[in-house]
Amino acid sequence: MWRVEVVGGGEGASLLSISNLLVPWAGESAGADFAPSVRIWRGQEAPKTWVYPFKRGLYPDPGGGGRIALKSRVYLMWFPLDTDGRCAEFPLLSSISSVAVTTFSGDQLPGLVEEIDRILPHLTAGDAAPFACLAFIAEELVRDGHGAIEMIPL
C-alpha cells in the first residue's frame, strides 16, 4: 500500500495526493488485498479466489537489493516479472519499491502514463480509477513542466 505525493509541481498538482494505493503486483488489490494467509492472519475474511491470476515464485523487490522483501511481489500473467523482480514490459511500474520511496520525474512521467494506460484493462474495477488518477497526476506534472511523483510505501 502506497501514498502518492507531488513534490515541486505547479499550484494545481500540489493539491493532489493519493492515499492507500494498492499495487496488484505486490499482492494487493481493491478486490482482495494481501495474500490469503496474510488476510487470515489479520483476521479479515478470506477471499474465495485470488482476484488476479498469478504464479508463486521468488521475485525480489528491486529497491531491496535483491534479497530484501523477497516475497513482496507476485508474477501476474499480464505483468511478467523477471527473476530480479523487474518487468521488461513495465520498467517504471515494476520499479516501484515496497521498501523505499520511489520517485518519478522528467522524462519518466510520459512513460509512466503510457504504462498505466496499458495495465488499466487488466485491473479490477476498484483498482482502475486510482491508477487512472495516478496517470492524471503524471499528466499534470508534464503540463507544468516540473515536479515529481513520490510513491511512499506504507
Binding site: I18, L22, R42, E45, C133
Partner: peptide
C-alpha cells in the same frame, strides 16, 4: 474487504 467497502481504500 474485511467487511467494509474496498472502494474506500484508495483515493485521489
Amino acid at each position: 474487504v474485511g467487511g467494509f467497502p474496498s472502494s474506500m481504500r484508495a483515493a485521489l
